Measured scan of single mutants.
Amino acid sequence: EEKRQVKQVAKEKLLEQSPNSKVQVRRVQKQGNTIRVELELRTNGKKENYTVEVERQGNTWTVKRITRT
């Protein structure tokens, strides 16, 4: 359940930055209360990979860091 929520948060964050792209989740890793989500962003056939680190704060998820990989 929490992985599902985190995927959603990570996707939304990337789509905010580039709204007309397609996002696909590649991998989800958990480390303590930080969850790392690896995503693939496609814009006009151009692929970019991103890693989004999401942290739990109380009962909400906040995006800590977005890295292009």
Rank of each mutant, 00 (worst) to 15 (best):
T62K: 13
L41M: 14
R26Q: 07
E2H: 08
G32E: 04
V63A: 03
V6S: 07
K11T: 12
K30G: 12
K64N: 05
T69A: 10
N20T: 10
V52N: 00
V52H: 00
R26F: 06
Q24I: 15
Q17W: 11
G58E: 09
T43F: 13
P19A: 04
K46I: 12
T67I: 14
R56S: 05
E38Y: 15
N20D: 10
K30F: 15
I66D: 00
S18W: 15
K13P: 03
E12M: 07
K22A: 10
R36H: 13
S18Q: 12
K3I: 15
K3C: 12
V63Q: 00
R26H: 08
Y50C: 03
E40H: 05
G45N: 08
N20V: 06
E40Y: 08
K3L: 15
V9L: 14
V37T: 00
E48W: 10
V37L: 07
E16R: 04
V25N: 01
V52Y: 01
K7M: 15
L41S: 04
Q8V: 07
N49P: 02
Q29F: 14
K13N: 03
L15I: 05
Q29T: 15
K3D: 15
T34F: 09
Q24K: 15
E1L: 04
N44V: 07
K11C: 10
T69P: 03
K11S: 10
E55R: 03
G32D: 05
Q29G: 07
Q8C: 08
N49A: 09
V54Q: 00
Q17P: 01
R36Q: 09
T69F: 05
T43D: 07
W61R: 02
K47W: 10
R4S: 09
I66V: 12
N44W: 06
R26L: 15
V9Q: 06
Y50N: 00
N59S: 08
E2I: 12
Q17S: 09
W61K: 01
Y50H: 01
E53T: 09
T62Q: 11
E38P: 00
E48L: 07
R4N: 09
N49W: 14
V25H: 02
K64I: 15
R27Y: 08
L14M: 12
L39F: 06
L15E: 05
Y50I: 06
E38N: 06
E16V: 04
V25R: 01
V9I: 15
T51R: 05
R36T: 13
K7A: 15
R65Q: 13
N59P: 14
E48R: 07
N44M: 09
Q57D: 14
Q57Y: 12
V63S: 01
N49K: 15
K30L: 14
Q17E: 07
R26P: 01
K30Y: 15
R42N: 14
K22V: 13
R56F: 12
Q24S: 14
T60E: 15
L15S: 04
E48P: 00
Q31M: 15
K11H: 04
V9D: 02
V28G: 01
E53K: 02
V37D: 00
V6W: 05
R36E: 06
K7I: 15
L41Y: 02
T60S: 14
N59T: 10
K64W: 03
R27V: 06
Q8A: 11
E55K: 05
Q17L: 15
N59M: 09
I35L: 09
V63H: 00
N20K: 10
L15Y: 06
V28P: 01
E16C: 06
L39S: 00
L15H: 05
I66A: 02
K30E: 09
E40D: 04
S21K: 02
G32Y: 03
P19T: 03
R26W: 04
R26M: 12
Y50T: 00
K64Y: 06
R56V: 06
R27S: 12
T60M: 12
K11W: 06
Y50L: 04
V63F: 03
E38K: 07
R26K: 14
L41F: 04
V52G: 00
K7H: 07
L14Q: 01
E16Q: 09
K13A: 14
N33A: 10
R42L: 14
Q5P: 03
G58Y: 04
Q24H: 14
R42C: 08
V54K: 00
L14E: 01
E48V: 09
E53V: 12
T34M: 11
R4T: 11
L41N: 01
Q17K: 11
Q57I: 15
G45I: 03
V6T: 04
V37K: 00
R26N: 08
L15C: 05
E53S: 05
R65D: 09
Q24R: 14
G58C: 05
V37I: 10
N49T: 14
Q8S: 09
E1Q: 09
N33M: 09
R4P: 03
T51Q: 06
A10G: 03
K13R: 11
K46M: 12
V6M: 07
R56N: 03
K30W: 15
R4Y: 08
S18V: 11
Q8N: 09
A10E: 01
E48T: 11
K30A: 14
R56E: 03
Y50E: 00
Y50D: 00
E48M: 07
V25Y: 03
E38Q: 12
L14H: 01
V28R: 01
T60V: 13
N20A: 11
S21F: 04
R56C: 08
V52A: 05
K13H: 09
A10M: 04
G45F: 06
N44D: 11
R36W: 15
E1A: 11
L15Q: 06
R42Q: 11
T34D: 04
V54G: 00
R68D: 03
L14A: 06
Q29L: 13
V23R: 00
L41A: 07
K46F: 11
N33D: 12
T34Q: 08
Q29I: 14
E2M: 06
T43G: 10
W61Q: 04
V25Q: 01
V37M: 04
K3E: 15
R4L: 08
K22I: 13
R65L: 11
E55I: 13
T67K: 07
K11P: 02
R4K: 09
Y50A: 03
N49C: 09
T69V: 12
P19G: 03
E1I: 02
I66P: 01
E40P: 00
E2Y: 02
R36D: 02
R65H: 11
P19K: 04
V25T: 03
T69D: 10
V52M: 05
G58F: 05
R68T: 05
E48Y: 11
Q29H: 14
Q5F: 11
S18C: 10
T62P: 03
V6K: 02
L39D: 00
Q29N: 11
E1M: 05
K46D: 06
T69W: 10
L41P: 00
E16F: 03
P19D: 03
Q8L: 06
T67A: 08
K22S: 12
Q8E: 08
L15K: 07
Q57M: 12
V23I: 13
T43Q: 10
R27G: 11
T62S: 08
T69G: 09
L14S: 02
K47I: 13
N20E: 07
G58I: 02
E53I: 14
G32A: 05
Y50F: 10
E12R: 12
N33F: 06
T43K: 10
V52P: 00
R65T: 14
S21E: 02
Q24F: 14
G45D: 09
R36N: 11
T60K: 14
Q17Y: 12
T43P: 01
N44F: 08
G58W: 03
L39G: 01
S18F: 15
E48S: 06
E55T: 09
T69E: 12
K11G: 03
P19C: 05
T69C: 07
E48C: 06
I35D: 00
R42A: 08
E2L: 06
I66C: 03
P19S: 03
K3A: 15
Q24G: 04
T34I: 12
E48K: 06
K7D: 05
Q57H: 11
R26C: 07
T67W: 13
K13S: 08
P19N: 03
T67F: 13
K47R: 12
E55M: 10
T69I: 11
L39Y: 02
T60A: 12
Q29D: 09
V28A: 05
V23L: 05
G45A: 06
Q31R: 11
V9S: 03
R27T: 06
Q31I: 15
G58T: 02
Q31W: 12
E53R: 02
V6A: 15
S21M: 04
S21G: 12
L39M: 09
V23F: 02
Q31D: 13
R65W: 08
K22W: 12
E2T: 12
Q17N: 10
V37G: 00
Q5M: 14
P19R: 04
I35N: 02
V23G: 01
L41E: 01
S21Q: 02
G32Q: 04
N44L: 08
T60Q: 15
N49E: 09
V6Y: 04
T67L: 12
T60P: 00
E1G: 08
I35S: 05
T51V: 14
E2C: 08
V9P: 02
T43S: 11
E40A: 05
E53L: 12
R27M: 07
T67R: 09
E12F: 02
N33K: 10
E53G: 01
L15R: 07
R65F: 11
N59I: 06
A10N: 01
E2R: 08
E16N: 06
I66F: 03
G45W: 06
L14W: 03
N20W: 01
R65I: 11
V52L: 08
T51I: 14
V52C: 03
Q5G: 09
E16I: 05
R68S: 05
E1N: 06
K13W: 06
G45Q: 08
L39C: 08
R42F: 15
K46A: 08
Q5L: 11
K47M: 11
K3F: 14
N59D: 13
R68N: 11
R68P: 08
N59Y: 07
V28Q: 03
